[in-house]
Structures are given as structure tokens and as C-alpha cells.
Nucleic acid binder design. Structure first.
Length: 281
DNA sequence: ACCCAGGCGGGCG
DNA sequence: CGCCCGCATGGG
């Protein structure tokens, strides 16, 4: 069995950092094993001791390797990305702390659902909500895991049935997004379009504002110009770069572009995860 | 008990 | 445009 060679990939940080939370991987890190349902089948990744080789176990190994490579952006030139975003001491330590954390590239619909559910919410609860959606309405695989329900399935549900999953006021957004994405809007046709087009199209969905659209553009479409600013990123930027003084989102957006350039979406993930863990751990 | 969470739409000036 | 408000729910 020949493994896949990987560089600068830390699955633990990548999988734990909530991007997006529709992507669930069971992480047995002491044994360097990760398993997840890639939408088609169950995949098991087994890392070598030095973390540079991965055995990919799956029924259809060819499909699994291709999906693994796409989702974890294995062809990204990490040394170059790091060198371009490593412009200051905070980013330097964030990269050191979470070295090998990758952005992931995920299904646009799942990413949309996840980040609509994320608003005014916290990671633990989002994770729980998504699992509940999968458990109740997802398509079950032979291996026992479930995939996230497609827009047509969710569109068949009543708002009350969605609320019963625990999502509260977000139910009307989810319902509306499902209606739109099973009808007039084709999320998949947006692939290959530019960042501005992707974002403005996404914002036509009721319940998708600027921040959520940026998350979807980044983690569902791979648009690295997207720099989503949530409460954690905002606080961290203000504390680290502006002496704790409150700044407007628009100002911070401009700052990010100037500070971290074309790979600022990558920078954002390190700011988010490092910033949150500075407070929480 | 109280506060907050990967924000949003709506209403107001 | 900018600003402010309410919002369902559960974990710390």
C-alpha cells in the first residue's frame, strides 16, 4: 500500500477549528487516525509518525484520495502562503502555534447551511445543531454515518420541524435558503466565478449577510480574498493591532487586505483560532 | 442568576 | 448610508 505524501498538514488543528462544522471527522489523534464521511463513503486517514505520509483507507480509494486532496487543499504552496501572511509577531506566533492548520474546501450548500446556523451562536452548539440535522434528515450511509440533507429535503420540512432541531430564529433563514437553493439559485454554478460575484450572489439568500457570505466564499469556494470578521476576529484584531480600541468592520476589512494581502483568508483562520484559544484555553 | 455566542434583517434618523 | 434593536437556545 503506497501512502499519500503530505507537507505542512496538521489534521487535528484543521479538523477542530470549525471550518465548517458540517464537516465532522472523528479524530483519534494519539493514534494519528482520522475518519470521516466524504459525502460518498467513509474514509480513514492514518498518519505516519512524522506526519508526512497518510494511508487512505476507503472502499473506493481513488475517489477518497482525490476528495482528501481537494478538501484539505494539499496542493496549496504553504511555505509561500506562510511567507506572505507572516507580516507581524502575532501572526508569526499563530502560525507557530497551529502550524499545518489548513483551510478546507467544502460543499457550497453544506457550508451555507453551517454558517447560517453559526450566527449569534457558538461552536459547540453549531456542531450539535448540524449533527441533529444530519441525524434526523440526512442520508444514512452503509457505514452508519450520515451526510447533510440536500436543499430539496430541507425544503420539504416545516419551519416548526426545523425549530425542533434546536436552531431557534435561524429556522426561517434555513427554510428560505433551502427553497431558493432548490430552485432559482444554483450554488454549484458559482464555482469558478470571482469573489465579488460569489459573495453578492450568496447575499441574495435571506439570512446570509456579509460575514456569512465571506465564510461561504472562503470555505465553500476557496476565495482567499474573503476575510470574514466575527466577534473573535474583531476583538483579536482590535486588541493586537489597535491597542484595544474599537474599530469598524469596514476599516478592519481594509486593514486585513493591506496587512495580509491575497492570502488574507488563510490569515483569518489563524487569527480566529489563535485568538479564540488565547481566551478560552 | 447572568452573560455570551463564527450576525442577521428590520426600522429608524 | 449608519446605528440600534430583538432574536432562540444552551453552555460557562
Amino acid at each position: 500500500m503506497n501512502g499519500v505524501k503530505v507537507e505542512n498538514l496538521n489534521l487535528k488543528h484543521t479538523v477542530e477549528s470549525g471550518q465548517p462544522l458540517t464537516f465532522h471527522a472523528d479524530c483519534d489523534w494519539p493514534n494519528r487516525r482520522v475518519s470521516y464521511n466524504n459525502g460518498v463513503q467513509l474514509v480513514t486517514l492514518a498518519f505516519s509518525a512524522n506526519g508526512k505520509k497518510v494511508q487512505v483507507g476507503a472502499r473506493d480509494q481513488k475517489q477518497a484520495i482525490a476528495e482528501f486532496s481537494t478538501r484539505f487543499r494539499l496542493t496549496d504552496d504553504m511555505p509561500r502562503i506562510y511567507s506572505e501572511i507572516n507580516t507581524d509577531p502575532f501572526m508569526d506566533s499563530a502560525i507557530a502555534n497551529y502550524n499545518g492548520m489548513r483551510l478546507t474546501l467544502n460543499d457550497p450548500w453544506e457550508t451555507t447551511m453551517c454558517f447560517i446556523l453559526s450566527q449569534y451562536n457558538n461552536l459547540k452548539r453549531i456542531r450539535k445543531l448540524v449533527l441533529e440535522m444530519k441525524r434526523r434528515y440526512g442520508k444514512r450511509s452503509p457505514d452508519g454515518s450520515s451526510t447533510f440533507p440536500m436543499p430539496e429535503r430541507i425544503n420539504d420540512l416545516s419551519e416548526q420541524e426545523l425549530r425542533d432541531c434546536g436552531m431557534g430564529f435561524r429556522a426561517k433563514y434555513i427554510k428560505s435558503a433551502a427553497e431558493m437553493c432548490s430552485g432559482s439559485m444554483d450554488l454549484y454554478s458559482l464555482r469558478g466565478r470571482g469573489y465579488d460575484t460569489v459573495k453578492s450572489n450568496l447575499m441574495e439568500i435571506y439570512g446570509v449577510g456579509s460575514k456569512v457570505a465571506d465564510c461561504i466564499a472562503l470555505m465553500g469556494y476557496g476565495k482567499m480574498e474573503a476575510f470574514p470578521i466575527d466577534v473573535w476576529v474583531k476583538r483579536t484584531l482590535e486588541n493586537v493591532y489597535f491597542k484595544g480600541k474599537e474599530k469598524k468592520i469596514s476599516m478592519l476589512t481594509d486593514f486585513a487586505e493591506e496587512q495580509w494581502g491575497r492570502y488574507r483568508g488563510y490569515a483569518q483562520q489563524y487569527i480566529f483560532w489563535n485568538g479564540m484559544n488565547m481566551v478560552k484555553k
